[in-house]
Design a protein around this nucleic acid. Structure first.
Lengths: 104, 104
DNA sequence: TTGACATGCAACCATTTGGTTGCATATAAT
DNA sequence: ATTATATGCAACCAAATGGTTGCATGTCAA
């Protein structure tokens, strides 16, 4: 779980996921296209995403195809985000109450 | 949004949010309790959480009370996680298809 | 008012991170 | 066979990160 959060912390990596979400199965060179980064930098980002199980790759001849795995993202939604959504309104109203108490 | 992802990337910070979720409105010293970290380290983490708008604080006399703000977490769920949940099954079946093609 | 307690501020440090360059290797095309 | 293309590997670098220690300040209590 920690690896996934760490992987998602970087904007470049999130945009790589976005690109794969838009078109799955892209090669490394395709993913580099238009980015202000060297190929090797992208390789490193993809390696981190792969270690976090967010992308899976298969080699097809001399090219490496990258596929998005949305499961860890879903798990973060289920196991983490949702926890904070329950009782959200209660927390907000308490915060509001406390902030108002300050001005009193 | 980037600030929120960065803030959530650290396990210590996530556990601070957990603690506030369990009991809202704790002081700095209370939040330090039982952590293998100096008070100043916790202060820094809380500052990052505050900058990301994940916690709000009010000073009450000589103590500072910390309140969880679940809105940014919710937004990440809405604006980011959900996007990858749509079409999840399609992506998975495509991945499976590709992996099987490799073995053929 | 004097001391204790809660927090703030700043300098410093080691490690991690995000990026680079240079070269090596493997596969496809001529 | 030779050349071009796609990727891999490793060393290096600056900046950010997560943590520390030491001291200052503000507030409550005796």
């Amino acid at each position: 779980m920690d690896e996934v959060f760490k992987a998602l912390a970087d904007g470049s990596r999130r945009s790589l996921l976005d690109r794969l979400h838009a078109r799955n199965g892209q090669t490394l060179n395709e993913l580099c296209d238009g980015l202000a980064m060297t190929r090797q930098a992208v390789t490193k980002h993809l390696a981190i995403l792969e270690a976090a199980n967010l992308v899976a790759t298969i080699k097809h001849g001399r090219e490496k195809l990258h596929y998005l795995n949305p499961v860890p993202i879903h798990q973060i939604g289920e196991r983490w985000i949702r926890k904070f959504e329950r009782g959200k309104l209660a927390a907000l109203s308490e915060l509001k109450r406390q902030l108002e108490k300050r001005d009193a």
